[in-house]
Computed example of a mutant assay.
Amino acid sequence: MTVYVAMDDTDNLESRGTGRLARAVAAALAETYTVYGVTRHQLFFNEAIPYTSHNSCAVVHLPGEGKANIPEIFETTKEIMLGDFVEGSDPGLAVAAAEQISPALVAFGKDAKCTVLTQEKARTLSRNLGIRLEGLGGTEDGVIGSMAGIGLASTGNDGRFLQIGRVREITGPAEVDTLLGAGIDMICTLDGRPVDGGTIWCKEGKSVKPCPIGGRAVLYVEEKDGQLWGVKRD
């Protein structure tokens, strides 16, 4: 079983982003729980939706946990988020166990990538599924993205990893074996060719960005001037 901790709309243009906050939450939760990774999920770009820069949410994955631990996980995360609250943000927090996630929540997540949704729909869905959801300031519009994030993360087929294993510790060009040993399960080209050896190139000071695919961490690469470069996908 896995517990998903989703947060959205936690920043303004001057503050650290939701991804950085999610990694801080993951570090705090790792003192008690096993953290598999942190994923980023792209939501709908539309003028009817107020967002800071990219309209994405972030989800911390805690494998091996269940509903019994949700109250403590929720309160720990809530305390961190409230301590980091910045004016102009509209944060929302949702925490759910895999057993609470229904096809309706997955559909809600997918709709959030292409449709304008409402707080009312997010809150109704949370009540019907028994999912802990709370707005933590501002307009509380972040409850929409946090519920969507849980639905999307649960599929194992959306977004990209902000953190998994030791991947963020490896910056610049790296050998395939090093990346596979750091938490990436598979490396392949965009046309599906597996990459088993050689060097994967990345900008100095940056780390590669694997994606959840079929429940695995997959890094896509593309060839440029005879070199294989990591691809960043939304």
Rank of each mutant, 00 (worst) to 15 (best):
T77P: 06
A97Q: 07
V5T: 11
D158T: 13
T39C: 08
I150S: 08
R23D: 10
P63R: 11
Y36R: 15
E134S: 09
S56F: 02
L125P: 00
H61T: 14
R166I: 01
D8W: 01
L136A: 13
N55W: 07
L179Y: 05
E47C: 06
D8Q: 10
H61A: 14
N12H: 12
K121M: 05
C114L: 01
W229D: 07
G159W: 00
V3H: 06
E14K: 13
T32E: 13
N46T: 08
L228H: 06
E87L: 15
G138M: 06
D177W: 09
L180R: 05
G92F: 01
D158Y: 09
Y4S: 04
P212R: 10
N46A: 15
G92Y: 02
D90E: 10
E87H: 14
T76K: 15
H61N: 14
G142R: 02
N55H: 10
F85I: 14
T32A: 06
Q100M: 02
D196I: 01
P173H: 07
I150P: 02
H41F: 09
C114Q: 12
R166F: 00
D191A: 12
A96K: 00
Y51T: 06
I187K: 05
T34Q: 13
P194L: 10
L136S: 13
P212K: 09
R132P: 02
G142I: 03
G156M: 10
A27K: 11
V116R: 07
G156A: 11
P63V: 11
P91R: 03
L105E: 04
P212G: 01
A68C: 04
G88W: 08
L43R: 01
P210L: 05
G130R: 05
R123F: 02
G17D: 15
G172W: 03
A107T: 12
V59F: 09
A122C: 08
R193V: 13
Y36V: 03
L162V: 14
G64L: 01
G198F: 05
L21K: 04
G64Q: 08
A97S: 15
E87D: 15
T18C: 14
P63H: 08
A174D: 09
E134M: 09
I144C: 00
G149T: 10
A24F: 01
Y36P: 00
S126K: 05
